[in-house]
Nucleic acid binder design. Structure first.
Lengths: 210, 210, 210, 210
DNA sequence: TTATAAGCGAGACGGTACGTCACGTCTTTAG
DNA sequence: CTAAAGACGTGACGTACCGTCTCGCTTATAA
């Protein structure tokens, strides 16, 4: 970890006074774009560093200067594209849950979204993906937590013990639907997708009644 | 594809009348055993055909004569070992569901079981896995269906409309637990695992009340 | 040599009462035809047993039952097609030598003929070709010997000590011409080829004068 | 073919301006050494790329980066070792021819030398060998030409028209002797070999008298 | 101004595995 | 009881990536 693959130098405090040529800030984005295209066109298994370097018009050394290995770049390129699905606030618990569930389902039905799921799945066996998987899980958990916090603030009567299992069921149900359906056969319409989510939410919400 | 990689010659009718040396039936099992060991020891990513051939004391050509490629063999070796988790009959709906859920969770926490899950996940993007994924889904669906059939036969009052969503939630909840937990950190004890499943089942069973 | 790869069962005397399934009499010719085609189309290096078997519509064991190995079949298929070039009798030594030389040159410029030469060349390093090479050398030597025998019978005055070296030079010169020329660039005409041989013969014949 | 397997970058003018890591000049020699050893120990047929790579301590990709295929490397390694047989200057035409012929015969009786001959023979049917064959032929032709040039400079009386056929006969005769003799049965002694060449030269030299 | 440090594109390098292909053997059933 | 069919063990082929390395630059800070 000693200065190699440092990416989140972040902090404006360290204004960076290191000698030597600074990293090309444009290259970073070109590489991530190339990587996500490589991923979308060829899939995770056939995603290659040589391919990304060629697409980005960049030497392989530049890739390995910034990312430790293939997995790291693959993960980051996918993560960079995974749009935020957490922003949800409809004014009611039911509305929020429907929105959340619909967002998740829609997200998982896109290549990039599904890729984040696959990364989570692979993370169980591949430590390289562990951190991203944790981060993604964190984001989903956080979103759910916010929804229920707001419900509490509004004074809704909720069986607190049921919250976690219900979220688990909701997310799980969405996952099952994606697996059963596949990327190839998306829902007929966006409203069809929403309807499906609505009925699931309406069903499990009964479990929240104290 | 005609006649190549034919594996399910099936039909006892055609007792095999093809001339020439028949495929060694023992080799088949030796290869699958070697393959599953290769898989368990080295993981899916480092699973190699040369390794399997060496372990099985078999030529690579024999492998490629029977399986189209690395993925096909990997999938089949895993599938061959995925023990039947469907056999469930405790006498009550609640008992059956708990048993079913516990079996599934325990299965998914083993390397082979988790591999079948990964195959299902990959199948969404990789047509090569489609058939196996369908077969696995079929087996799970069948098991659940049997449980509810028996409940109906016993005269249990069930909200039929809720059956499918409930199963979806149950299986989904188990999946979520596996993903959140990882293979590395199994449950403290088998009873701990069972307790967890019991509470989940008890929760969602409320949705089946008419 | 004990009954394996027996090929010249010949002699009608042995009417053949050997037990067991008789050999398919048609197979032999079909195989040789397939072999020479395989050879002509793909060359000696890419000549394969599987290819011959496929062309002949025959199992590989049928090949190995009759020929010891790839080389044996290759050699025999070529030898079976190498037309006799020895028959020469023009009435004069000069005429005979010109005829002999021309025949040889023409033969070596054909694929099959050149192949016999290559076999001779390979025989130096590959014992499998030894016998054929010897047989071929024998035939050439025999032809030359006959020519000079007839010359002596006609009473021609010949420096006997020069005969062998002259034949060596003649055959060698023809070989050199083939190597310098290549199969791809044959002589403009057949008479051109004959002219070339005539002048060479006329030159070296001076060495035969006592 | 543009720039791939380029080996004779030659021209000192272009001091090498190609970007990227330059090819290791040491590796080249290591590979050729390994290759010639592989060839001498195992013969042309059992000469393998993996073997060469292992001997040279080099990856296979490095081999294929420089040589198009097995044959190309085999040919080049042999060519690199084919010692110069052209350097001949005894002070007389007869001496030069004897020396030249003896050198050639001795060369062809060694594995590497005979291999160059086989390459020439194969070149007739295999375009891949064409260039090497031409180069080798060129070298032999050049050596012969020099010998006769010096003879002319010394004022020897020579029938110019006979020069080419005589050289053809000499080289051809040597070739015939090698073919008749084989690598396995070398001459009893080096002087035996020289005697043989001397008598052949003495014979054909008569043809050079005007 | 000059020296030193690092980034960069290019591509060679040592490896490892892939999937193919051919050889010559072995194990069946066919005749 | 041999012939024929074709699966088998072996092992090399040529390709594709991996992650590292070495070049000759370019671009910055430090002396």
């Amino acid at each position: 970890m000693s200065g190699i693959h440092e990416r989140h130098t972040g902090a404006a405090a360290t204004i960076r006074k290191r000698p030597g040529r600074p990293r090309d800030p444009i290259a970073e984005q070109r590489i991530l774009d190339a990587a996500i295209n490589e991923f979308l066109e060829r899939g995770a298994a056939r995603f290659t560093m040589d391919g990304v370097a060629r697409r980005a018009g960049v030497g392989k050394s530049t890739l390995y200067l910034r990312w430790a290995d293939r997995d790291a770049l693959l993960v980051e390129s996918v993560r960079a594209r995974s749009r935020s699905i957490e922003a949800v606030d409809t004014g009611s618990l039911r509305g929020d849950l429907i929105q959340l569930t619909t967002n998740l389902l829609r997200f998982l039905l896109e290549p990039v979204g599904y890729a984040t799921f696959r990364i989570t799945v692979d993370a169980v066996a591949n430590p390289a993906y562990e951190n991203v998987a944790k981060e993604l899980a964190q984001r989903h958990r956080h979103a759910a937590r916010r929804v229920f916090e707001r419900a509490r603030e509004r004074g809704d009567a909720i069986d607190e013990a049921a919250v976690d299992p219900v979220v688990e069921c909701l997310y799980g149900a969405v996952t099952m639907q994606v697996l059963n359906r596949g990327l190839g056969r998306p829902f007929a319409s966006d409203s069809d997708l929403a309807t499906r989510c609505t009925s699931t939410v309406d069903l499990v919400m009964r479990l929240l009644e104290p």
